[in-house]
Computed example of a mutant assay.
Amino acid sequence: MSKPTLYARSLCIHSAWIQQQLVEIGVDHDTVYIDYLERAARRNLVRELERTRSPVTFPVMVLNNGDDMTKPKLFALSTCVHCAKVKELLISLNVDFDTLYVDRLAGDERNHRMRELKGYNPEISFPTLVVGDQVVIGAKEQRIREILLGE
């Protein structure tokens, strides 16, 4: 997966706050300060961003190479029965999602994913399901259905 890019304004308090949050949870990313771009480059950037979101306001986080920030992510343990229940539910609902079995990770990758999980769930409990800006901690089927299906 490639690094996300944060397009920001250099003197914007919101840009600074997002930058700080990304650093705290350990997200390796690039930052482009749009006020330092030449006028034509800035105009082209805005046009490109408008193809996927409108209106364009800064700061904007862009996940590169087609990565989808809204694709659900399940933080799980390979031996956890509750994690398996959530995974089965997502499969039964035909949801395209990523599963991260943190107990199967090692070294820097494990440390990075644990910091990422702690940003969503400071208690670091399993399962933890992240869907966009929504977080479900535990095997809460009804809550998961509400978020994914609007039930």
Rank of each mutant, 00 (worst) to 15 (best):
M1A: 10
S2I: 13
T5Y: 11
I13G: 02
A16E: 14
I18F: 08
Q20R: 15
Q20G: 12
Q21T: 11
L22G: 07
V23D: 14
E24S: 12
I25P: 01
V27H: 10
D28Q: 14
H29P: 01
D30F: 01
V32N: 05
D35Y: 05
L37T: 05
L37A: 02
E38H: 13
R39C: 07
R39F: 12
N44P: 00
E48Q: 13
L49C: 05
L49V: 00
E50R: 09
S54I: 11
T57E: 13
T57R: 08
P59H: 04
N65T: 09
G66V: 02
D67L: 15
K73T: 15
L74C: 08
L74I: 08
F75I: 06
S78G: 07
T79N: 05
T79L: 02
V81T: 12
H82Y: 15
C83D: 06
K85M: 07
V95S: 08
V95M: 11
V95F: 04
D96Y: 04
F97G: 09
L100K: 06
L100N: 09
V102T: 10
D103Q: 01
R104A: 08
H112F: 04
R113Q: 14
M114S: 01
M114K: 08
G119C: 03
N121V: 02
P122S: 07
F126V: 07
F126M: 02
L129F: 07
V130T: 07
E146I: 04
